[in-house]
Deep mutational scan, measured.
Amino acid sequence: NKFNKEMRNAYWEILLLPNLNEQQKRAFIRSLYDDPSQSANLLAEAKKLNDAQA
Score class of each variant (00 low, 15 high):
residue 1 N to H: 04
residue 1 N to T: 03
residue 1 N to D: 15
residue 1 N to Q: 04
residue 1 N to R: 03
residue 1 N to Y: 00
residue 1 N to I: 03
residue 1 N to K: 06
residue 1 N to L: 02
residue 1 N to M: 01
residue 1 N to P: 15
residue 2 K to T: 12
residue 2 K to W: 14
residue 3 F to A: 15
residue 3 F to T: 15
residue 3 F to N: 15
residue 3 F to R: 15
residue 3 F to W: 03
residue 3 F to S: 15
residue 3 F to V: 15
residue 3 F to M: 15
residue 4 N to Q: 09
residue 4 N to D: 15
residue 4 N to P: 15
residue 4 N to A: 03
residue 4 N to L: 14
residue 4 N to E: 15
residue 5 K to A: 02
residue 5 K to H: 02
residue 5 K to P: 04
residue 5 K to L: 00
residue 5 K to F: 01
residue 6 E to W: 00
residue 6 E to T: 03
residue 6 E to I: 03
residue 6 E to Q: 04
residue 6 E to Y: 02
residue 6 E to V: 02
residue 7 M to T: 08
residue 7 M to A: 15
residue 7 M to I: 07
residue 7 M to G: 01
residue 7 M to H: 01
residue 7 M to L: 10
residue 8 R to F: 15
residue 8 R to A: 13
residue 8 R to I: 14
residue 8 R to T: 05
residue 9 N to V: 14
residue 9 N to A: 15
residue 9 N to P: 01
residue 9 N to F: 14
residue 9 N to K: 15
residue 9 N to I: 14
residue 9 N to T: 07
residue 10 A to M: 03
residue 10 A to Q: 01
residue 10 A to Y: 01
residue 10 A to V: 08
residue 10 A to S: 11
residue 10 A to R: 02
residue 10 A to E: 01
residue 10 A to L: 03
residue 10 A to P: 00
residue 10 A to N: 02
residue 11 Y to P: 00
residue 11 Y to D: 00
residue 11 Y to I: 13
residue 12 W to L: 02
residue 13 E to V: 11
residue 13 E to D: 05
residue 13 E to R: 13
residue 13 E to P: 01
residue 14 I to L: 06
residue 14 I to W: 00
residue 14 I to T: 02
residue 14 I to F: 02
residue 15 L to D: 02
residue 15 L to T: 06
residue 15 L to Q: 06
residue 15 L to E: 02
residue 15 L to Y: 04
residue 16 L to T: 06
residue 16 L to V: 06
residue 16 L to I: 04
residue 16 L to F: 13
residue 16 L to P: 04
residue 16 L to S: 13
residue 16 L to D: 08
residue 17 L to I: 03
residue 17 L to W: 04
residue 17 L to Y: 05
residue 17 L to M: 09
residue 18 P to S: 05
residue 18 P to R: 09
residue 18 P to Y: 04
residue 18 P to V: 07
residue 19 N to A: 12
residue 19 N to D: 09
residue 19 N to W: 14
residue 19 N to P: 00
residue 19 N to T: 08
residue 19 N to H: 14
residue 20 L to Y: 00
residue 20 L to D: 00
residue 20 L to R: 00
residue 20 L to N: 00
residue 20 L to S: 00
residue 20 L to T: 01
residue 20 L to A: 01
residue 20 L to W: 00
residue 21 N to T: 10
residue 21 N to L: 12
residue 21 N to Y: 13
residue 21 N to W: 12
residue 22 E to V: 13
residue 22 E to L: 04
residue 22 E to Q: 11
residue 22 E to W: 07
residue 22 E to G: 06
residue 22 E to Y: 11
residue 22 E to K: 13
residue 22 E to R: 07
residue 22 E to S: 11
residue 23 Q to F: 07
residue 23 Q to V: 10
residue 23 Q to W: 12
residue 23 Q to P: 11
residue 23 Q to H: 09
residue 23 Q to E: 09
residue 23 Q to K: 09
residue 24 Q to N: 09
residue 24 Q to M: 08
residue 24 Q to T: 05
residue 25 K to L: 05
residue 25 K to S: 03
residue 25 K to I: 07
residue 25 K to P: 00
residue 25 K to F: 04
residue 25 K to W: 02
residue 25 K to G: 01
residue 26 R to I: 12
residue 26 R to T: 05
residue 26 R to W: 08
residue 26 R to K: 05
residue 26 R to V: 08
residue 26 R to A: 04
residue 27 A to Q: 12
residue 27 A to P: 03
residue 27 A to S: 11
residue 27 A to V: 14
residue 27 A to W: 05
residue 27 A to M: 08
residue 27 A to T: 14
residue 28 F to E: 00
residue 28 F to Y: 10
residue 28 F to W: 07
residue 28 F to T: 10
residue 28 F to I: 06
residue 28 F to K: 04
residue 28 F to N: 01
residue 28 F to H: 11
residue 28 F to P: 00
residue 29 I to F: 10
residue 29 I to A: 04
residue 29 I to S: 03
residue 29 I to T: 08
residue 29 I to Y: 04
residue 29 I to R: 02
residue 29 I to W: 06
residue 30 R to L: 08
residue 30 R to M: 05
residue 30 R to E: 06
residue 30 R to I: 09
residue 30 R to P: 01
residue 30 R to K: 13
residue 30 R to G: 07
residue 30 R to T: 14
residue 30 R to A: 07
residue 30 R to S: 13
residue 31 S to W: 08
residue 31 S to D: 13
residue 31 S to R: 09
residue 31 S to M: 12
residue 31 S to E: 14
residue 31 S to T: 07
residue 31 S to L: 13
residue 31 S to Q: 12
residue 32 L to I: 04
residue 32 L to K: 00
residue 32 L to F: 03
residue 32 L to D: 00
residue 32 L to E: 00
residue 32 L to A: 01
residue 32 L to H: 01
residue 33 Y to E: 02
residue 33 Y to I: 09
residue 33 Y to T: 04
residue 33 Y to H: 10
residue 33 Y to M: 09
residue 34 D to Y: 09
residue 34 D to H: 14
residue 34 D to Q: 12
residue 34 D to I: 14
residue 34 D to G: 10
residue 34 D to E: 09
residue 35 D to R: 07
residue 35 D to Q: 13
residue 35 D to I: 08
residue 35 D to G: 09
residue 36 P to L: 04
residue 36 P to Q: 04
residue 36 P to N: 06
residue 36 P to M: 03
residue 36 P to G: 09
residue 36 P to I: 03
residue 37 S to D: 06
residue 37 S to Y: 09
residue 37 S to G: 08
residue 37 S to A: 12
residue 38 Q to H: 07
residue 38 Q to A: 12
residue 38 Q to M: 06
residue 38 Q to K: 12
residue 39 S to D: 01
residue 39 S to V: 13
residue 39 S to R: 13
residue 39 S to T: 07
residue 39 S to Y: 15
residue 39 S to W: 15
residue 40 A to K: 10
residue 40 A to M: 11
residue 40 A to Q: 10
residue 40 A to H: 09
residue 40 A to P: 11
residue 40 A to S: 13
residue 40 A to I: 14
residue 41 N to Q: 12
residue 41 N to E: 05
residue 41 N to P: 08
residue 41 N to T: 14
residue 41 N to H: 11
residue 42 L to H: 14
residue 42 L to N: 05
residue 42 L to F: 09
residue 42 L to S: 04
residue 42 L to D: 02
residue 42 L to R: 08
residue 43 L to K: 12
residue 43 L to N: 05
residue 43 L to T: 12
residue 43 L to F: 03
residue 43 L to W: 04
residue 43 L to D: 01
residue 43 L to I: 08
residue 43 L to G: 05
residue 44 A to W: 08
residue 44 A to R: 04
residue 44 A to T: 04
residue 44 A to K: 10
residue 44 A to D: 05
residue 45 E to D: 12
residue 45 E to N: 13
residue 45 E to P: 01
residue 45 E to K: 07
residue 45 E to T: 09
residue 45 E to F: 05
residue 45 E to G: 07
residue 46 A to P: 00
residue 46 A to F: 01
residue 46 A to W: 01
residue 46 A to M: 01
residue 47 K to G: 03
residue 47 K to S: 05
residue 47 K to L: 04
residue 47 K to E: 03
residue 47 K to V: 07
residue 47 K to Q: 07
residue 47 K to R: 10
residue 47 K to W: 05
residue 48 K to T: 08
residue 48 K to G: 07
residue 48 K to S: 07
residue 48 K to R: 12
residue 48 K to V: 10
residue 48 K to Y: 10
residue 49 L to R: 06
residue 49 L to Q: 13
residue 49 L to A: 14
residue 49 L to Y: 12
residue 49 L to D: 06
residue 49 L to K: 11
residue 49 L to M: 09
residue 50 N to G: 07
residue 50 N to I: 03
residue 50 N to Y: 03
residue 50 N to W: 01
residue 50 N to F: 01
residue 50 N to P: 01
residue 51 D to G: 11
residue 51 D to I: 08
residue 51 D to T: 11
residue 51 D to M: 11
residue 51 D to V: 12
residue 51 D to E: 15
residue 51 D to W: 11
residue 51 D to A: 06
residue 51 D to P: 02
residue 51 D to H: 15
residue 52 A to V: 08
residue 52 A to D: 14
residue 52 A to R: 08
residue 53 Q to E: 08
residue 53 Q to A: 10
residue 53 Q to V: 10
residue 53 Q to H: 13
residue 53 Q to R: 07
residue 53 Q to T: 12
residue 53 Q to I: 12
residue 54 A to K: 09
residue 54 A to T: 12
residue 54 A to P: 08
residue 54 A to Y: 04
residue 54 A to I: 13
